[in-house]
Write a protein that binds this DNA or RNA. Structure first.
Lengths: 133, 133
DNA sequence: GTGGTGTTCAACCGAACGGTTGACAAAGCA
DNA sequence: TGCTTTGTCAACCGTTCGGTTGAACACCAC
């Protein structure tokens, strides 16, 4: 909660502030390299160097990308000797899906409601900002 | 591709490079303020100052946020005297939804396939990197 | 032990981000 | 004709981001 991390350091828990989960997931997937890794991980687990192979960047860069995927909960890592197999955690997708679907539905509802309003149309100026209490 | 923008500047088209559409949408929604704006816009169109009202930041900051939403195609703006009513373009949600659903499905398929493999289990090492040609 | 392999850590760098302030344009209102 | 409202543009500032290099750690194989 305060220092605790970055002193004993090495293990996890150097979260510091960490954005809300939804922001983390969205921003993790905002990078094409990271999206590509996720896509490949839907086919099979892979080690860091296997994941790094197709890209031109250094292994360290890939390792960093994996960290943000892990922090976002999209990916988990186990241990196999020196190797760190990466595994996709598809559940987190739901977080996004739910957010998106919720507001999409709300938007659609609103549009159909608006159709109604337009048909009704008394003499108000133009329903500009709508009926938001 | 080179200068061209930022010289004639003022009108649109200062795209410079502009990330791929999917990255733009994801990263636009990676900010909680922007997500909140989108959420509110599902209820009704709104002007810039109406949108800005609940937040502590300056109008200019809100204007910037709207720009990234607009560049991502999530939002469009019309004109009403000095006002610039903002309207949600819910279609772009589909871009994300499709990406997410595609890989979620792929991941699920893989897991069920893996169940099969485990039951079958010959003597191969472990199907590590799978069958990605 | 020594050496190789796989991965992470630490420091650094330039570009992008999220915010600020100040100036200004464009339209309505006195 | 001013003055106000609404919004954008431009410049700046500190922080984060995506990448680099170099060093270190952890583990296996001689």
């Amino acid at each position: 909660m305060f220092s605790t991390d970055r002193l004993n350091s090495n293990r996890k828990e150097r979260t510091i502030v960490s954005a809300d989960p939804l922001s983390q997931v969205f921003s993790a997937l905002a990078d094409p390299t990271r999206r590509d890794m996720v896509a490949r991980l839907t086919l099979a687990d892979a080690t860091v160097s296997e994941l790094a192979e197709p890209y031109e960047m250094s292994i360290q860069a890939v390792s960093k990308h994996l960290r943000v995927l892990e922090d976002a909960g999209l990916v988990s890592r186990s241990r196999d000797a020196q190797r760190r197999p990466v595994h996709l955690e598809a559940d987190v997708f739901d977080l996004m899906t739910k957010w998106i679907e919720r507001y999409r539905r709300q938007a659609e509802e609103r549009y159909s409601r608006l159709d109604g309003v337009l048909r009704w149309m008394p003499d108000k100026p133009n329903t500009r900002t709508g009926e938001e209490t």
